[in-house]
Simulated scan of single mutants.
Amino acid sequence: MTRIALVTGGNRGIGRAAADALADDGTDVILTYRANRDEAEEVAGKLAARGRTAAALPLDLTRPATFPGFAEQLRALLRNRWETDRFDILVNNAGFDKLTPFGRTTTDDIDALYAVHVRGPILLTELLAPMIRDGGRILFTSSGLTRYAANPAYSVYAAMKGAIEVYTKYAAKVLGARAVTVNALAPGATATDFAGGVIRDDEKYRAMVTANHASGRVGEPEDIGNAVRIVTAEAASWITAQRIEASGGQSL
């Protein structure tokens, strides 16, 4: 039976790399997007051109009242495309960065980061968990910033990721009886559009990061996509409740 993955924020960056890596592994992919429908449809089309069944659905993690409607859309899509009411892998990837320099953090900053990185993924996961097949996989995206303190302006962002790492353990305990694994993947500095693309585009910033890096380079989206594929593989059934860092040895 072909496995089916749902990747939130799968239209760009790490989410797109995860969708590509899962497709390479023979997994069909449903990806979500918040605003850029054309980009998401393009990604789904490229996955389909590679022989996978793929689709894109809109999802705004800041609006939990819309989650039941999203779940109904997902059920209908699963029935129409795959003749099933279940899927196998949930990758909670959607997110954004926001700088919160110490002493200048606002209530709106905290609320925005919380909505997307904590409240949204938790509520969505608990709503969709009954649709995940026994033996399935749930993966939250965390950050290397929960281990090493880099720019203090990422303090609140990192704190939200720390919260989701804790939640991962509790969800793993609840879902273990169904052989559903729950883990958190923590990427290190990766060359995406995160933080305005500074890691990808600013050579001086890249040099600063790699100066204290075992691998001597920053990560590429494909590095993280491959890590997603490994942690969500059928063979990874005995790995659960873990924070797994994919940083190439950053800040050791």
Score class of each variant (00 low, 15 high):
residue 3 R to S: 12
residue 4 I to V: 13
residue 5 A to P: 10
residue 7 V to R: 13
residue 10 G to T: 03
residue 10 G to V: 04
residue 11 N to M: 06
residue 12 R to G: 03
residue 16 R to I: 03
residue 17 A to W: 09
residue 18 A to I: 14
residue 19 A to G: 15
residue 20 D to S: 06
residue 22 L to G: 05
residue 24 D to A: 15
residue 26 G to E: 10
residue 28 D to Y: 04
residue 28 D to F: 01
residue 29 V to M: 03
residue 30 I to T: 08
residue 32 T to P: 03
residue 33 Y to N: 07
residue 34 R to H: 09
residue 35 A to C: 00
residue 35 A to F: 00
residue 36 N to S: 10
residue 42 E to P: 00
residue 43 V to Q: 06
residue 45 G to R: 13
residue 45 G to H: 03
residue 46 K to Y: 04
residue 48 A to Q: 14
residue 49 A to E: 13
residue 51 G to V: 11
residue 53 T to R: 15
residue 56 A to P: 15
residue 57 L to F: 08
residue 59 L to T: 03
residue 63 R to E: 15
residue 64 P to A: 06
residue 64 P to H: 04
residue 67 F to N: 03
residue 68 P to M: 07
residue 69 G to K: 14
residue 70 F to A: 01
residue 71 A to L: 13
residue 74 L to N: 07
residue 75 R to S: 11
residue 76 A to C: 01
residue 77 L to Y: 09
residue 78 L to F: 01
residue 81 R to L: 08
residue 82 W to I: 04
residue 82 W to S: 04
residue 83 E to N: 12
residue 83 E to Q: 15
residue 84 T to Y: 05
residue 87 F to D: 08
residue 88 D to Q: 14
residue 88 D to H: 15
residue 89 I to T: 07
residue 90 L to H: 04
residue 91 V to Y: 12
residue 92 N to K: 04
residue 92 N to A: 13
residue 94 A to H: 08
residue 95 G to E: 00
residue 96 F to R: 04
residue 101 P to S: 06
residue 102 F to A: 13
residue 102 F to E: 05
residue 104 R to D: 09
residue 106 T to W: 02
residue 110 I to C: 02
residue 112 A to P: 11
residue 114 Y to H: 04
residue 115 A to K: 02
residue 120 G to K: 02
residue 123 L to N: 02
residue 124 L to H: 05
residue 126 E to M: 13
residue 132 I to V: 14
residue 134 D to I: 01
residue 137 R to P: 09
residue 137 R to H: 11
residue 138 I to W: 06
residue 138 I to G: 08
residue 140 F to T: 04
residue 141 T to F: 08
residue 143 S to M: 08
residue 144 G to I: 10
residue 144 G to V: 11
residue 146 T to Y: 14
residue 148 Y to C: 05
residue 151 N to L: 14
residue 154 Y to D: 10
residue 156 V to E: 09
residue 156 V to Y: 06
residue 157 Y to R: 06
residue 157 Y to S: 06
residue 159 A to L: 11
residue 159 A to S: 11
residue 161 K to H: 01
residue 162 G to T: 05
residue 164 I to C: 02
residue 165 E to F: 00
residue 165 E to A: 12
residue 166 V to Q: 15
residue 170 Y to C: 14
residue 170 Y to K: 14
residue 171 A to Q: 13
residue 173 K to R: 10
residue 176 G to C: 11
residue 178 R to C: 14
residue 179 A to V: 03
residue 179 A to R: 11
residue 187 P to K: 07
residue 187 P to V: 03
residue 189 A to R: 12
residue 192 T to M: 05
residue 192 T to K: 10
residue 195 A to I: 02
residue 196 G to K: 02
residue 197 G to P: 14
residue 197 G to C: 13
residue 198 V to H: 04
residue 199 I to K: 05
residue 204 K to L: 15
residue 206 R to Q: 12
residue 207 A to H: 06
residue 214 A to S: 05
residue 214 A to D: 01
residue 216 G to T: 05
residue 220 E to G: 09
residue 222 E to D: 14
residue 222 E to Q: 15
residue 224 I to D: 01
residue 225 G to R: 00
residue 228 V to M: 00
residue 229 R to T: 07
residue 231 V to A: 11
residue 235 A to K: 12
residue 236 A to V: 11
residue 243 R to W: 07
residue 247 S to Y: 01
residue 247 S to W: 02
residue 247 S to Q: 01
residue 248 G to H: 09
residue 248 G to M: 08
residue 250 Q to Y: 14
residue 251 S to T: 04
